[in-house]
């Protein structure tokens, strides 16, 4: 039985590699929809996104109309928000990194943090998961790594190629949030989960949903796209 399990079990290195590079390519662009629900209201945002490597990304809100043009630029560990209503760019200070990004349950840190599961975590496959079906893995942060998470529990699919659920535990070992990856589709030549659902433990009733509407991977993007001057001329 143990042999059978071992034979089925995906290799840890492959799983980490797959998770690290799930949405990451030399450069990508696409359209994303974000739905942020709280107890009292629901917000729909439609955005264009660009990213290049691990360090550069740009998000521009297209809808709703009153927020159209609002943009977020990430270069390295720096984050800027461009506010078209006042034509001003504000750099997010480090103390705001754990605050909400654009009023959603994602934090600024989620955008900036170039987390590398391979570099920052020790990973092991624990065994099979029945609900949802797949393999359960645990990532524990390596000593000396600074970050929000102490541990991430994963469930990956049978092949070990795609994430199904991720549970994030904070530095005190408390479950902080759960991310579900669903609606796996071919998009831009890749098979990816196109819908992500984020639930935070300390905000019951909140649900943030991220949908990839279309994506192109391995495209050519100029570095100029990820500059403040470009941000302000969008």
């Amino acid at each position: 039985m143990a042999n059978a399990l071992a034979a089925d079990m995906p290799r840890v290195e492959d799983v980490i590699h797959n998770l690290d590079d799930l949405y990451r390519t030399s450069a990508s662009t696409g359209h994303v929809e974000l739905i942020a629900k709280t107890e009292t209201q629901t917000r729909h945002l439609k955005m264009r996104v660009w990213s290049k490597g691990k360090d550069k990304s740009l998000i521009i809100i297209d809808e709703p109309a009153r927020e159209a043009g609002t943009a977020t630029l990430k270069v390295g560990n720096n984050l800027w928000n461009y506010l078209p209503k006042i034509s001003r760019t504000i750099r997010i200070p480090p103390s705001m990194m754990l605050s909400s990004w654009m009023g959603t349950d994602f934090t600024n840190d989620d955008l900036v943090k170039d987390t590398s599961y391979e570099r920052d975590f020790d990973t092991r496959i624990v065994g099979r998961s029945n609900d949802p079906t797949g393999w359960t893995g645990v990532m524990e942060v390596k000593p000396g790594v600074v970050g929000r998470w102490q541990k991430i529990e994963w469930v990956v699919n049978e092949e070990g190629t795609l994430p199904v659920v991720a549970r994030y535990y904070d530095r005190k070992g408390r479950l902080a949030r759960t991310m579900r990856f669903t609606e796996v589709k071919m998009m831009g030549g890749r098979k990816i989960p196109t819908r992500m659902l984020l639930e935070t433990v300390d905000q019951p009733g909140h649900l943030t949903e991220l949908r990839y509407l279309d994506m192109k991977f391995d495209v050519k993007l100029s570095d100029n796209l990820f500059s403040l001057s470009q941000l302000e001329s969008q």
Partner: peptide, 16 residues
């Protein structure tokens, strides 16, 4: 000063 915050409907509030 440019101010940025979250409006009561969840959208981005900004003003000078």
């Amino acid at each position: 000063l440019a101010l940025m915050g979250q409006a009561v409907d969840g959208s981005i509030a900004s003003g000078l």
